[in-house]
Structures are given as C-alpha cells and as structure tokens.
Amino acid sequence: MTRTLYGLKNCDTCKKALKELEAEGKRADFVDIRAEADLPSKLPRWIAAVGEKLVNRSSTTWRGLSDADKARASGVTLEGLLLGNPTLIKRPVIETGDEVLVGWSAETKSRIG
C-alpha cells in the first residue's frame, strides 16, 4: 500500500509518525507541505475528506492571525487561508489510497493499513 505523509521537515510529530511507521514496517513517502506539495490540487480533496479538522488551531501561525482571518477558517474561504498559510495545516496529513487522515492520534494509527 502506498502511503504519503505530508508535513514539515522540522515537525516533531511528523518525525515521530515516520519513525513509528518505519518501525512497524509500513513505508511512507514524505512530502514537505511548504516546499514540495501541490497544495492547490491537494487541499480540495483534504478539505472534502476532513473539513475544518485540517486547521491546526493550536499553532503559532493560528494565534498570529487576525480575527477576520480566523473567521475564514470555516466555509468556502478555508482553502485560500491554507494556501496562504500552509503551516496552519494540522500535521501530518496522511494519504492511504482513498483515505485522508490528519494528525498522529491513536485513531489515525489504527486506521493506517
């Protein structure tokens, strides 16, 4: 099974996820969301799959946004907000075939094939 993990190279959670997947013999290709990901084509699919769960509301980037920008984190302008601020994307985003998983939680770990 092909798995792609989208994240940031310096993200501790992404590093942990890759390490744990490797330890379990599950290969995952890493794609940096700032430098390598084709966000204009990925975001519509991710948003359709997980919605606002894609927004990392505990990030430094989120805390630095204006109230107006925070209001954009719901509805039709979510994609534009994430395109302009890729570090707002909750990490990691993992694609496993047709499924999109966000974050490195017990639920995510149980759903990775």
Rank of each mutant, 00 (worst) to 15 (best):
G103H: 04
V50I: 13
L18Q: 11
E107K: 13
N10W: 06
E20T: 12
T4G: 02
K9G: 15
N85Q: 13
V31D: 00
T61C: 00
E107P: 10
G84F: 04
L43R: 00
A71M: 09
I94Q: 02
T77G: 11
V102S: 07
L88M: 08
L65A: 02
S59V: 04
A23T: 07
E52Q: 13
L18F: 01
S59Q: 08
T2Y: 03
N85T: 10
D67Q: 14
A71E: 15
K26S: 09
A35I: 06
G80T: 12
P44Q: 03
N56V: 08
A68D: 14
L54A: 00
K109M: 06
G51C: 06
I112K: 08
T2F: 05
E99V: 11
L21T: 04
A71Q: 15
P44K: 01
A35L: 14
M1F: 10
L78A: 05
P92F: 02
C14V: 15
L81F: 07
D69A: 13
T13A: 02
D67S: 13
P92C: 04
G84N: 14
L21D: 01
F30P: 08
P44D: 04
R63D: 06
L18H: 00
E24S: 13
C14F: 08
T96V: 14
V55R: 00
G80E: 13
T77K: 15
E95I: 12
L83N: 00
L101V: 03
K16A: 11
N10C: 08
L39P: 01
F30W: 07
K15N: 06
T4L: 05
I89S: 00
K70P: 03
E36K: 04
E79S: 08
I33N: 00
A71P: 10
G75Y: 07
L78E: 03
G25T: 08
R91A: 02
Y6P: 00
S58E: 11
G25Q: 08
T13Y: 09
R63P: 04
P40E: 00
W46Q: 00
C14A: 11
D98G: 14
T60A: 14
C14T: 12
N85M: 05
C14S: 11
K15T: 05
